[in-house]
Amino acid sequence: MICDNAELILSVKDLTANVDGTQILKGLNLEIKAGEVHAIMGPNGSGKSTFSKILAGHPAYEVTGGEIIFRGQNLLELEPEERARSGIFLAFQYPLEIPGVSNLDFLRVSYNAKRKHEGLEEMDAFDFDDLVHEKLGLLKMDAEFLDRGVNEGFSGGEKKRNEILQMALLEPSLGILDEIDSGLDIDALRIVASGVNALSNENNAMLLVTHYQRLLDYITPDYVHVMANGRILETGTKELALELEAKGYDWILEGAAA
């Protein structure tokens, strides 16, 4: 929902970044305000995941120019864990499996890290159990998932739901969802999308990276951006996504080249 005097959550200016010496981001600009849902679409390899991971602070990417301001703070000065505690959340395109760390312990440790950052007391195991069960319901997940290793042996769809479960607990002010819809069957997509919608409110914002209009049928974006070759080439409303679905990206790439 667009609201003119809403808080500026994210402001990215002329961002350039390398990985292993190769430039991937080539001057990216983006502004996101509280209450908004943005979608980034674009061809494979255009830098969408790179941008997402840079926001979360992945050490493999070297920012060579530009700035990222998150709620008035210079994001590039913060460690990944500090970004997470201040309200950045990245749902990974490929969530990792971490056998041996129980999902429940993982959720509790990260939840309490955030509480500590906010100056709150750690939540005890009983209260946390109640909280996590409530959130499980939102994602229609079985409590059995809590006892398993983080994502260990989860199906693709279960991993994605587990990512949203984490987001539901951490209540970020910016949720970056990298291809949260890829590989989901229609029922799982509905569950994930309704989870995201339930978490969206006027104080936070969502950035969806996707290849498919289908996700946007369930989560309505306020803005749709087209990314190619490390830049945002085109920004429009949800109608742009429909146009992309029908015509592909070539017309935008050609327009940019001309």
């Binding site: 050490p59 990245l90 971490i98 984490q166 951490l170």
Partner: peptide, 13 residues
């Protein structure tokens, strides 16, 4: 990547 996954959830390195 494993360390980063945990960091991205607020857990220190």
């Amino acid at each position: 990547d494993e360390v980063f996954y945990l960091q991205s959830r607020g857990i220190g390195a």
